[in-house]
Design a protein around this nucleic acid. Structure first.
Lengths: 197, 197
DNA sequence: GGACTTGCTGTATCCGGTCCAAGAATGCAG
DNA sequence: CTGCATTCTTGGACCGGATACAGCAAGTCC
């Protein structure tokens, strides 16, 4: 939230600068056709420095969204109800690199990579949400199913929002619509727990 | 389904042989500590031949399950209802390499790899099921949510089954329980489609 | 000026995965 | 028996992502 600490050598670049260079190259050469060396060369830093800013190549596209996810998980741990915490993901989400990647997936040559990363986020959402849902209901299997529904709702809403051009206002409503669908699911499943325990 | 074609040089090894060698090494050195060269050396074939039997290292664990998934998808395309097609995944599923990997995840050093692969299968299930569900309801977002619930049900059931020791009989019941939870979800969501179209 | 902390860089290394050309082992047609 | 088509094996080259590390640069604080 605050600015960086003051100690030590200041950073010579920034995640934004590197991400910008990367996205340019993705448009020009495609995602697979762009090596990390290409990115850092254009950004004016050494290849090894790339990993000071991103953990992996794909993080260039996902780091912003991942930060929102992490915030939502923190809120959940702090006691915020699941649906409320997830709804905040859509608050003030300006079109970022992920939205850019979704809308221009073809032009950037993001064939399966985007799907692979989306799959990881779906699983991450499922895991974290299920952790909180299991405490409430006690049925682990139902919690996993319900959590996956929530995760799919979040990602589905983001995708639809991006594909419509990331018009800034509609994500929040889209997300709430999706989450309401998921919540209705939970209301119907409070019986039949101990059948197979 | 039938035997192999008769033409050309016969195979010098088999997926089973290679998978066996691989699993041994995973127990001895861990998944990450075992290179593909290690596996092929123990199996008595050249490194390049590994990719004649598996597309990737992780396929050693997942190829059996993937075949069942593919069969289920084929059935869905042929018109079998979603829940019925998915229920067949549990039919006669003898403990295979995947079950072995789940139960011995720690001993094999399968830290995140198993989760990553599971995430991909969850997304695959979601995609294929949603493809069939969208035709029926027309609401793409709800279809994605519902499809993810189905996928999570399948994987959750398989995981519980494996963690209980893969006792051969209980998977089918577990799966049907999970799928019934998912189906109840679908019954409640037939309104509220055109609100945001 | 020094100690300390942080970041940059070049390099070496590892491994998964792809590609390819040459050769080996089979069935089959003549 | 002789080619021929087919299929698989093998070794090697190659690429790119990711990790590790050692040495240096650039700041802050005392």
């Amino acid at each position: 939230m605050t600015d960086a600490p003051r100690l030590g050598r200041p950073r010579a670049s920034s995640p934004e600068t590197i991400a910008e260079a990367a996205c340019e190259l993705f448009f020009e050469q495609g995602y697979d056709g762009t090596s990390i060396g290409d990115i850092t060369r254009r950004a004016g830093v050494a290849r090894a420095s790339f990993f000071n800013y991103f953990r992996a190549k794909s993080d260039v596209l996902w780091s912003g969204f991942d930060a929102r996810l992490a915030a939502a998980f923190s809120a959940m741990i702090a006691g915020v109800p699941v649906a409320d915490a997830l709804a905040r993901i859509g608050r003030d989400l300006t079109p970022d690199t992920l939205a850019l990647a979704i809308t221009n997936a073809d032009a950037m040559g993001l064939g399966d990579e985007l799907e692979r990363q989306r799959a990881e986020r779906l699983a991450l959402l499922q895991r974290e949400i299920a952790r909180r849902l299991t405490d409430a209901t006690g049925d682990a299997l139902f919690a996993q199913i319900h959590a996956a529904a929530y995760g799919a709702g979040v990602l589905g809403a983001v995708w639809m929002w991006a594909e419509r051009g990331a018009s800034s206002e509609s994500l929040e409503g889209l997300l709430q619509h999706a989450l309401s669908l998921c919540e209705r699911f939970g209301a119907s499943g409070d019986s039949s727990a101990a059948a197979l325990a």
